[in-house]
Computed example of a mutant assay.
Amino acid sequence: MAQSKPQNVFAPWNDPQEKPLIRFQNVTKRFGTFTAIDNLTLDIYRREFFALLGPSGCGKTTMMRMLAGFETPTEGTILIDGVDVGPIPPNKRAVNMMFQSYALFPHLTVEDNIAFGLRRDKTDRSSIADRVSEMLRLTRLEKFAKRKPHQISGGQRQRVALARSLAKAPKLLLLDEPLGALDRKLREQTQFELMDIQEKTGTTFVIVTHDQEEAMTVASRVAVMDHGKVIQVDTPAGIYETPNSVYVADFIGDVNIIRGKAHPADGGLIRIHYAEGAEPILATPTQPVAAGQDVAFAIRPEKIVVAWEPDHSRANHARGKIIDIAYLGNISTYHLELPSGQKVSAQMTNARRLARRDFTWDDEVWLSWSDTAGVVLQD
């Protein structure tokens, strides 16, 4: 039987020969005595869908505004395609920005909104018509071309704004919370549309969001920020499965954090003593840990198995009492209390109908997980 060829994985950040499209070199931005961006160095590559993720005030919007040219660095350099863009005004940069409000012209039709930037640049008529037609097809708006913004839905307005931003074929498109005004279901649908359009055009997208699910869905890589610093840059899977700090583990998704002292065990494992009288947690560290060192063990709820009996194929077992249940349709989250008083969450897929499920409030159950199910963090 012929073997299928392995798919090419898009990961230019792992190729030392690849030159980044965007490079922040030791960039600091101050507003008076407040430091919004603190000595930031970061590379973003061509055709990436890159997400800046963090809480309000972490500096992600300031980074985007500096890329667009609306703010200038206090110190350091920003390069786009190898050129220092510090002296280049916003309208001369090969960068476009799509705002959360969409900023469509209410008196213009969909096609005229898309054509606006091209007409302002005095592009010839036939080229404008061809480009607008291409953008209408790309965003599936052909039948809405003659309508005005108030005559189409919020999701369609979002696509008009995207088409207008892409019409001038920028090297870089900046998206500032672009889906914040949409309801949850439409937002999820539009995330996949954005990914599809980005892949078809090959344009580099940089999105600012505080919505971790959005960042994890659309991005090739995510930069998690806090207080003007990038704490970790990695793929969504890397951020979720191997966070480099308690901050990142806690910020992305649900997680249980158990703190204790580490002691060496056989086979390169460690035992984490977290409560008097409790069986220590057996874990596999990813970096050296000194005997007696304070560590945090981070484990996602879905990595914990809940059962009436301990699962002896797994290295760790603990008794737990169910104190609350959150039924979310496809999954149920169990909030449990260990004999030590430690509270943990476990998640299970609802593969069976509600009437046939086993556990309820106040049940005494066993929790089991493997030695590699969690991450040992030192901070």
Score class of each variant (00 low, 15 high):
80 I>W: 13
26 N>W: 03
109 T>I: 09
77 T>H: 08
18 E>S: 14
65 R>D: 12
65 R>N: 15
49 F>D: 06
24 F>G: 11
51 A>G: 14
113 N>R: 12
27 V>H: 07
39 N>H: 13
51 A>R: 04
25 Q>W: 01
64 M>D: 04
128 I>G: 03
97 M>K: 08
94 A>S: 15
78 I>Q: 03
105 F>T: 05
63 M>D: 08
59 G>W: 01
57 G>R: 04
109 T>H: 03
108 L>T: 05
71 E>P: 10
97 M>N: 12
91 N>E: 15
69 G>M: 07
121 D>L: 14
32 G>D: 00
75 E>L: 10
76 G>N: 13
34 F>M: 11
82 G>V: 05
43 D>W: 06
105 F>K: 07
97 M>R: 10
41 T>F: 02
90 P>H: 01
71 E>Q: 12
67 L>D: 08
54 G>Q: 11
21 L>W: 08
62 T>F: 03
60 K>V: 12
109 T>Y: 08
129 A>F: 01
30 R>W: 01
26 N>D: 15
22 I>D: 07
23 R>P: 00
113 N>P: 13
21 L>N: 11
122 K>I: 01
40 L>S: 02
54 G>W: 01
130 D>N: 14
105 F>L: 06
113 N>L: 09
41 T>R: 05
80 I>S: 10
60 K>W: 03
125 R>T: 15
26 N>G: 04
60 K>C: 12
66 M>K: 04
108 L>M: 15
50 F>E: 11
118 L>F: 00
18 E>V: 11
21 L>V: 07
98 M>A: 08
38 D>N: 15
124 D>C: 03
40 L>N: 03
120 R>D: 00
66 M>R: 03
117 G>N: 07
86 G>Y: 14
112 D>K: 15
100 Q>L: 05
102 Y>R: 02
48 E>Y: 11
25 Q>V: 14
114 I>M: 08
94 A>H: 10
91 N>F: 13
116 F>K: 05
130 D>W: 00
123 T>W: 02
97 M>L: 15
129 A>K: 11
49 F>E: 03
85 V>Q: 09
39 N>V: 00
52 L>V: 05
40 L>A: 04
129 A>P: 01
122 K>V: 00
68 A>V: 10
100 Q>D: 08
78 I>H: 09
28 T>V: 05
111 E>S: 13
99 F>G: 11
19 K>V: 13
49 F>K: 10
128 I>C: 03
89 P>M: 13
129 A>W: 00
48 E>F: 03
50 F>S: 11
121 D>A: 14
33 T>L: 11
43 D>K: 08
111 E>N: 12
103 A>K: 06
115 A>Q: 04
19 K>F: 02
79 L>N: 03
50 F>Q: 06
29 K>V: 06
107 H>G: 10
97 M>C: 10
85 V>D: 08
73 P>L: 04
128 I>N: 01
69 G>L: 14
42 L>Q: 11
43 D>C: 07
26 N>L: 02
91 N>P: 01
67 L>P: 14
127 S>G: 00
44 I>P: 08
93 R>Q: 11
102 Y>T: 09
110 V>R: 07
20 P>M: 09
64 M>G: 05
29 K>Q: 12
65 R>T: 05
89 P>Y: 09
57 G>A: 07
78 I>M: 12
34 F>V: 15
